[in-house]
């Protein structure tokens, strides 16, 4: 699988404070890569390093097959659309004039700009001043500026920040459709639910370190959900000294993988504890993360 972004030991320190610590990112081509982590975990700094807006203290970055540094920024930037921290925009200008500024800076064609505006469905608001835009409209304008160059890669930092549920859904559909067109999308969020439904690959950052990277399925595989044993006689099972607590329908046990589950069932049957059913708790992505991060959570 070819990767649009790879980093090796990417590190950024400010004074004695390490903000990003030894990241080895692998962002596959054509995917939506969800970059998750709580506020202050180093997501924005990492994205700024990918865009050459911030210089790494240590480590290597390769984007679209080219090393990233201040010399290659001008070669790479026509292919990378970005939205970092908050949408840009000149408040005294209309949406159309803002796009004209971007068009002249990027050397984009009228067609590229019109297409970008059409994709974010901002057409009817283009003659309104940006200072009068809602946050959602500003976000969409920001994404339109990122798209105005026909990018191969989009780096979007919290693009759904401050949006209402309908706006979040709209951005989600937009990003998935862009990935369907072959654009690789790296999108950060501190809210798991937002990313869960659009990202096919996830990177989880905690205190500047990459806690997990892989597909959603691999993430679930990494975590062992609790086991629920349906039995009408949980007391007898507890008397056997099992590390269990009372749960819905009987017992709840943590940390039992498939082999341990088979042993458990064998033990219960051997001691003639009636077993009506054994199942795993359905986990949300958030619970998986909680599991991964030692119940500290992400936000």
């Amino acid at each position: 699988m070819s990767h649009v972004i790879t980093t090796e030991g990417l590190t950024k320190t400010y004074g004695s404070r390490t903000v990003v610590d030894g990241l080895d990112l692998r962002v596959p081509e054509g995917c939506v890569y969800g970059f998750l982590g709580p506020n202050g975990s180093g997501k924005s700094t990492t994205m700024k390093m990918l865009l050459s807006l911030v210089r790494p203290t240590r480590g290597e970055i390769s984007v679209l097959g080219r090393p990233v540094d201040h010399r290659t920024r001008h070669e790479l930037s026509p292919h990378i659309g970005s939205l970092i921290e908050a949408p840009p925009g000149y408040g005294h200008l209309t949406g159309r004039e803002n796009m004209a500024v971007v068009q002249r800076m990027l050397g984009s064609s009228d067609r590229q700009v019109a297409r970008a505006v059409e994709i974010v469905r901002l057409g009817e608001h283009m003659d309104k001043r940006v200072r009068d835009y809602s946050l959602g409209m500003k976000q969409r304008l920001g994404i339109a500026t990122a798209l105005a160059r026909d990018p191969r890669l989009l780096v979007l930092d919290e693009p759904t920040n401050g949006l209402d549920p309908a706006g979040i859904e709209e951005i989600r559909e937009l990003l998935v459709s862009l990935a369907d067109r072959g654009i690789t999308v790296m999108v950060s969020s501190h809210l798991l639910d937002e990313v869960d439904r659009m990202a096919s690959v996830l990177g989880v950052l905690g205190r500047g370190r990459l806690i997990f990277q892989g597909t959603r399925e691999e993430l679930f595989d990494r975590s062992v959900p609790d086991l629920l044993v349906d039995t009408p006689e949980p007391e007898r099972a507890l008397d056997l000294g099992l590390p269990a607590v009372r749960g819905p329908g009987g017992l709840r046990l943590s940390g039992f993988d498939d082999a341990a589950t088979a042993d458990l069932v064998r033990q219960l049957v051997h001691h003639e504890v009636p077993v009506h059913g054994v199942r795993r708790v359905r986990q949300s992505l958030e619970e998986v993360f909680m599991d991964l991060t030692g119940r500290e959570g992400l936000s």
């Binding site: 700024k48 865009l51 807006l53 001008h74 070669e75 930037s77 026509p78 990378i80 970005s82 970092i84 921290e85 908050a86 949408p87 840009p88 925009g89 000149y90 408040g91 971007v102 800076m105 990027l106 050397g107 500026t145």
Partner: peptide
Amino acid sequence: RGHNWNLLMSTPIR
């Protein structure tokens, strides 16, 4: 104002 630096510096303009 309004994060326009990030926009300016992520264009091909030198």
